[in-house]
């Protein structure tokens, strides 16, 4: 399976994403610069964390208009797995691939620490290796993770089971309904503030994020074995 790790000016979790796909999963991975114009050779797209374009104007607002984003939209429409973590999530929101928007953390502080997440939906291509309601520990590192959407959007998210991760216990940023990660209605675009790629080895303080990446590969192998 071939993973694309999109790199914007200011991305800083691209190396961790690459490491998760290449070294931990043992799959193929390649960095793709933001002004590239094709993702055709890839089976999955990873949008890493960081501060693309310095977070100028709004987080993800400028990255969203990078040439590669047209290709990310195409990949999403084609049903390929698209994972956006932290700034990657913010970019997906700005691009309209996921509903809602980010506000500054309620505390106005940048928060960097491990948090407990609850897997609310384990029937996605990103979470099938987890148990439903399993509590996992994944680090967060963000100043703008205070997810917001209007009531109608929230009702839709709930009705379609699109809330994939919630903060368990304390909500670190004030997000609506303790939301930490959501998926699109089609079920192939996941955005989350916590960093699963920073939790793929006990040496890093935990490996609870590894199952997320393994789920993607598992799903891909299953669908492609059927076709073969």
């Amino acid at each position: 399976m071939r993973f694309a790790v999109i790199v914007f000016p200011g991305s800083n979790c691209d190396v961790d994403m690459y490491h998760a796909a290449k070294d931990e999963l043992g799959e193929e991975a390649e960095y793709v610069w933001h002004d590239s114009t094709s993702l055709e050779d890839f089976d999955a797209v990873l949008l890493p964390g960081g501060f693309s374009f310095g977070d100028y104007l709004r987080t993800g607002a400028i990255a969203r208009f990078s040439p590669i984003m047209n290709e990310v939209v195409k990949a999403a429409e084609a049903g390929k797995p698209v994972l956006g973590v932290c700034n990657g999530f913010q970019v997906l929101l700005e691009a309209g691939l996921l509903p809602g928007a980010m506000r500054r953390n309620e505390s106005l502080k940048f928060i960097c620490r491990p948090v407990q997440l609850k897997v609310k939906n384990n029937e996605t291509m990103f979470t099938s290796s987890y148990q439903k309601d399993e509590v996992i520990q994944i680090p967060i590192a963000h100043g703008e993770g205070n997810y917001y959407c209007d009531e109608q959007t929230l009702a839709n998210l709930k009705a379609n089971n699109q809330i994939v991760f919630t903060y368990d216990g304390t909500n670190p940023n004030g997000s609506i309904e303790d939301i930490a990660g959501i998926i699109n209605a089609q079920g192939n675009v996941l955005g989350m503030m916590p960093h699963p790629e920073r939790a793929v080895d006990p040496l890093l303080g935990g490996a609870d994020g590894l199952k997320l990446f393994k789920s993607i590969v598992k799903q891909w192998r299953e669908t492609h074995a059927v076709k073969a």
Binding site: I62, F65, E94, G100, A101, C149, D150
Partner: peptide, 8 residues
């Protein structure tokens, strides 16, 4: 399109 985010 860019200067504001109509969602918020």
């Amino acid at each position: 399109r860019l200067l504001s985010n109509p969602v918020i």
